[in-house]
Simulated scan of single mutants.
Amino acid sequence: MDHSLSEASGDSPPLSADVSPDRTATIMLAMLPKIGPRTLVALLDHFGSAQAVLAAPGPALAQVPGVGPKLIHTIRTAHHHVDLEGLLKWCDENDSEILVQGTSQYPARLNDLPDAPPMLFVRGDITTDDQLAVAIVGTRHATHYGLKQAERFGYALAKAGVTVVSGLARGIDAAAHNGALNAGGRTLAVLGSGLGQIYPSEHEGLAKAVAADGAVVSEYAPDAKPRGGMFPQRNRLIAGLSLATLVVEAPDRSGALITARMAGEQGREVLALPGNVTSRASRGCNQLIRDGATLVQTVDDILESLGPMRESVTTSDGHQVRNASELKLNEIERTVLEAIDAESTPIDQVIARSGQATHRVIATISVLEMRRLVRRLSGQYVSRI
């Protein structure tokens, strides 16, 4: 029998014509109470789609680990628990949108997570440029040194064309966002609450500025108030959206260390700014360095640590970036690099393609070689790394 969403969950409220059944089902399922990310993933893996989950009979739902009688009842009566029409109306009235996993708008990097949220609420825009992103995190109780460094790195990364990701919290997070905004760059803020419950409330102005030059992101319903357990959960998204996570200041018990651990588990780079050995605020950073995190002093350290990327990224200015260090190149260096293939390329061909003088190309190749972007194969041949 062909079960529709309404058959599975009663008479659903009318929806806009541009809301597809698959998207409708995913939103409804994700908004049900007592369903965490891992249970959602398990349900979707088992049934293949949100529509199939909502249409499934109780015995079939019971076969999924973690799904008991109460949750089965919730799924079978989904429309009683989710005001879908009201949710969509709120998003429309508050310049927000819902990004569903599996669509082109959903951040590709989050697909690497085993418990990626099936949907995100977003105010602002997530673009292809945001694939080049670095998280900056740290303590809410930052020192003057920590605040200045977070702002400095946020500014320098944004100037280099890297999106700065953080959590809109007091202290290091806010300084990092402000640094990126002051540079005229992009920044993403991931919330541990809903978009309608900005926390802390004094950062509503900052959230508005972030949305204008990036995006404010949450996996929670707009009216979800912040609770302690929501912040560690959102930290996986901060790490997941980023190629690397930089911890600027963190005591030995800090949420920033959770983000760093999650970044490591996700196979992302973990970076730390060293601090005074007598400063409680730097204990976590110094421990990370002791345990193998990359010590960072300048933005060049960050870009070098990222190295070659799994997939090249096309930036908004049309350049193909394969290595984050390319972001620091000047126009001539970029022109020469783009004239070099991944395979063996004759230097004479590089000169012809780039349109630069011979002596300038030779000198530039030496610079690119020192930056580990190209390698000489012989006196007359070169290739990209």
Rank of each mutant, 00 (worst) to 15 (best):
M1Y: 01
L5M: 11
A8I: 01
D11S: 13
V19F: 09
T26F: 03
G36M: 05
P37W: 09
P37G: 00
T39P: 01
T39M: 11
D45M: 00
A56F: 07
P65D: 10
V67T: 01
V67M: 01
K70P: 13
I72V: 14
I75Y: 04
H79M: 00
H79G: 06
H81V: 09
E85H: 01
G86V: 02
W90S: 12
E97I: 14
E97C: 12
Y106N: 06
R109Y: 13
N111W: 05
V122E: 12
I126K: 04
D130P: 11
D130E: 09
A135N: 01
V137A: 09
T139V: 13
H144R: 12
H144F: 07
G146S: 14
L147Q: 15
Q149H: 10
K159S: 15
V165E: 09
R170D: 15
A175Y: 03
N178I: 03
A180D: 01
N182K: 15
G184H: 06
G185I: 07
A189T: 05
P200Q: 06
L206Y: 13
A209H: 05
A212I: 03
E219Q: 15
R227Y: 00
G228P: 03
M230K: 00
M230T: 04
R236N: 12
R236L: 04
L237G: 11
A239Q: 11
G240Y: 03
L241G: 15
L243R: 02
L246T: 04
P251K: 00
M262K: 15
A263S: 10
G264I: 11
E265I: 00
V277F: 08
S279A: 15
A281L: 02
C285A: 11
C285Q: 02
N286M: 09
L288C: 10
D291W: 05
V296N: 07
E311Y: 07
V313K: 01
T314G: 13
T314P: 11
D317L: 09
A324K: 08
L327V: 08
N330I: 03
E331M: 02
T335C: 04
A342F: 07
T345H: 07
I347G: 11
I347N: 10
I351S: 08
A352K: 00
A357H: 10
V361T: 12
E369T: 05
R371M: 13
R371C: 01
R375T: 07
G379H: 12
V382Y: 02
S383R: 11
R384T: 12
